[in-house]
Design a protein around this nucleic acid. Sequence first.
DNA 1: TTTAAAAATAGTAATTATTACTATTTTGCT
DNA 2: AGCAAAATAGTAATAATTACTATTTTTAAA
Lengths: 128, 128
Amino acid sequence: MNYSRQRESIKEYLMSTKEHPTADIIYQNVKMEYPKISLGTVYRNLTLLVEVGEVKKISTGDGTEHYDADTSAHSHYYCRCCHRLMDLEVTPSVDQILAASSAGIGTVESANLLFTGVCKDCIREQNK
Amino acid sequence: MNYSRQRESIKEYLMSTKEHPTADIIYQNVKMEYPKISLGTVYRNLTLLVEVGEVKKISTGDGTEHYDADTSAHSHYYCRCCHRLMDLEVTPSVDQILAASSAGIGTVESANLLFTGVCKDCIREQNK
DNA sequence: TTTAAAAATAGTAATTATTACTATTTTGCT
DNA sequence: AGCAAAATAGTAATAATTACTATTTTTAAA
């Protein structure tokens, strides 16, 4: 992977915000510095950065993906009303998280935990 | 909400499978019973069923949504290789889940917990 | 059991997010 | 400087989802 100003700018913007922006929002912001940047470049670099582990992709089910340069272990709270995605600095038991967050940030209508990895079947396939 | 055979069939199919199918897979299956059903009908009813709480929508970030008629509190494991979404009957501490699932199902590359609800700001707005 | 309004449907068109393609430019190396 | 690999802008294509409309189904009341 070679250096690119555009990719740096994307990373910089992502690190400067706590908003968990979508590709399009990132595009609009990076365009201020690089008016000729194309949306495809934003998507390609986001995919790259996620692959390399420098950025996390967060799926809320609202129709578009959100991105976060904070790769530390933390959870998120999504408001289905204003569509904001917020940080939650928690890792303890789900019950505790539920109690804590329902007291703090808003109502909790669902708490979903999703693990991603490569399953045993696929590992077996790969070792053939 | 009025009764509809198509909606019943969608629910029936969803309850019969552990596969967490996408709208399109559901469409293909319900089409066996109702060959004239349209994809729009599937989408509309899935949205309705999710709103009413009879079905859960699960976002893996793989480009399409998955649906689950099992609304009990459980987590999921997504394999980024074969794109299968599997059930995990867990609710204890995230650390325990991590340990348990990494031993069992496959590698765990990420564990993401997402809460959804209505945030305090929105509740405040609504009470005006 | 007819009937009329409300809700749902099939089929199609439109929209939106994302990916693919290509000719040109930038980067890293020697 | 000069060359290959990687990246880009711009555009076209794809895939998932939503919107629209004329017709059919459902529901409940006459």
